[in-house]
Write a protein that binds this DNA or RNA. Sequence first.
DNA 1: ACCGCACCCTGAGCGC
DNA 2: TGCGCTCAGGGTGCGG
Length: 291
Amino acid sequence: MPELPEVEVTRRRIAPLLVGRRVARLHTTRNSYFFLTPPGRLARAVEGRAACGLERRGKYLVAPLEGGARLLLHLGMTGQLFAGGATSIRLLRASARAALPPEAQPAFRPDSHTHLRFCFEDGGPEVLFRDVRKFGKVQLLAPGESCARLARLGGDALEITGEQIFRAARGRRIAIKSLLMDQSVVAGSGNIYADEALFWAGVRPRRQAGRVTRAECRRIAAALRRVMLRSIETGGSSISDFIAPDGSDGAYQDERRVYARTGAGCRRCRRRIRRVLLGQRSAHYCPGCQR
DNA sequence: ACCGCACCCTGAGCGC
DNA sequence: TGCGCTCAGGGTGCGG
């Protein structure tokens, strides 16, 4: 589940392969939930143009194109944006992995989940966007067109202050973790880093947002920033599907304290990590370290 | 205004 | 071996 750190790692590493290279062909799958802009229109708009930058807004990637249009990408839960020639077992289904010898690195061949395939005029490496569950999104924004999705975003998780979180939480009865995952409050935060930040801040995920103190909000903001910067440094979290554009795994999953560690011992106090449901999502916390 | 929940999708992992 | 079931989850939108 790519969140801010995974999107930022992707941005930094895919930018050199995308920016300034003129697209000769854009191959797509057929229209689906994935395409906010129908694939034919998308291809016509992108072909013959180059991206002139690649920016991140929360969990979105935005590529301004020559001519003023913008290409919006969201990795959803299982999105993978990578270079042609990259190899990773995460690009294979489990049955295919199991059939491989342990150290095999099979070349990836675009499959039915590869929704975008950018081929460039220079004949160099392609850029591929694969997304098994199609929770990812691609959208073309015409020159000058505003975007409601981007307009809704709150403060970037790397920049947000404790005071901003505290103010957003006033009077709110939802769980603090739900507030942290609301992209109109904190852009870029998701299940993993909300759980991790709440661990470091010592706050239980189900605490009512309006009852979290100003001091706790400051700790939450500081922890969010710290875990995300550290995750970017280590290449993000590869827990299920995430790979960097070169096919490599991130390493932050090895440093996590609570996320998906249900039943394991807390690395600080040894008590067992608990999992609770929050809406339709799971939340993980240490009963000893979080109040 | 706020909040909880259904929905979109597919593969993994389970029990039978 | 294979079927059918449940679960996971980001973001959106709806109904209460």
